[in-house]
């Protein structure tokens, strides 16, 4: 079970003066159960990449497929395959439209042609996942919710499609640190419970390091790095800075401590480990 890009190139507005090649010959495979962070500066092609992954854009060259089914196809199979990939856009609350939270979350499942009972169950399940109490919120207008709640209702609308692959484009944009943590707690719960794949576009090195098991670094329409976040941050700091990225704070702190003569292992990727190590070195409990 995997989604695949094979030699995918994507060009915007081909044949016009505005022609722009956003992806260049990208090959990539993502398996069910993976948590992949996609980082890269604005205009690097990462949004185009994920839109090719879920069949919203079709490659100019090459193919995008899910379990062998070409996502660009017009067949029923292709449509079904596209339906297995959920996509949460940036500021998803701006796509809410229905009169009640229930109706909005039910939009996707209804489009899948499910029966009323199944739709009902899906909505309840999805709302629970994002931490919106069904009794309290189902019949309320989505526009009467707070910003953070609206975001969660919108995410529920995608979760209710029961996707095997969930793509999130900057799910924490514009939220304060507290709400950010809450949204991620829900995403992680979903990831662990359902065993789905999560592909997350983010500007935050901290989020990539904290949640993802695999990281893609995109620059100028190509994949610069593809590997474990910890390894990339440890070994490729120089190149990351060159492509406008950074390393998480914990790496910088470890480096600052080492520079002052504190002997620390070279492979620290986690704040808790670093803290434990510092305590050990300093003979603290």
């Amino acid at each position: 079970m995997s989604m695949k890009l094979e030699h995918v190139s994507y060009t915007y507005m081909p044949g016009t003066p505005y022609e722009k090649e956003a992806l260049k010959d990208i090959s990539l495979e993502i398996n069910k159960g993976e948590f992949v962070a996609v980082i890269g500066h604005t205009g690097s092609g990462k949004s185009t990449l994920v839109q090719n992954l879920n069949g919203l854009l079709h490659p100019t060259k090459g193919t995008a497929s899910l379990d062998g089914v070409d996502l660009a196809g017009k067949t029923k199979e292709a449509k079904q395959a596209r339906g297995r990939i959920g996509m949460v856009f940036q500021y998803p609350e701006h796509q809410l439209f229905a009169e009640t939270v229930y109706e909005d979350v039910a939009f996707g499942p209804k489009n899948l042609g499910l029966g009323q009972e199944e739709v009902d169950a899906r909505v309840k399940d999805a709302m629970k996942f994002v931490g919106l109490d069904f009794e309290t919120y189902a019949q309320r207008s989505p526009f009467s919710l707070s910003g953070g709640q609206m975001r969660r209702a919108a995410i529920a609308g995608v979760v209710a499609m029961n996707p095997d692959y969930l793509i999130l484009d900057e799910p924490s944009a514009g939220l304060d640190p507290g709400s950010r943590n809450a949204v991620f707690a829900e995403i992680m719960a979903l990831y662990k419970k359902r065993g789905i794949a999560i592909i997350m576009v983010t500007h935050s090195m901290e989020e990539a390091a904290k949640y993802a098991k695999r990281m893609l670094v995109i620059n100028k329409g190509q994949i610069v790095f593809d590997g474990k976040p910890g390894e990339i941050f440890l070994k490729e700091k120089k190149r990351l800075l060159e492509v406008g990225m950074d390393v998480p704070e914990v790496y910088k702190l470890a480096e600052a401590l080492r520079a002052k003569g504190l002997r620390l292992p070279n492979d620290i990727t986690d704040a808790k480990l670093l803290l434990a190590e510092v305590k050990r070195r300093k003979g603290l409990k």
């Binding site: 704070e249 910088k252 702190l253 480096e255 600052a256 401590l257 520079a259 002052k260 003569g261 504190l262 510092v278 300093k282």
Partner: peptide, 12 residues
């Protein structure tokens, strides 16, 4: 800041 922490720890 990281530097302040590093200084504080190394001066001990």
């Amino acid at each position: 800041t990281n530097e302040e922490l590093a200084d504080a720890l190394s001066s001990r």
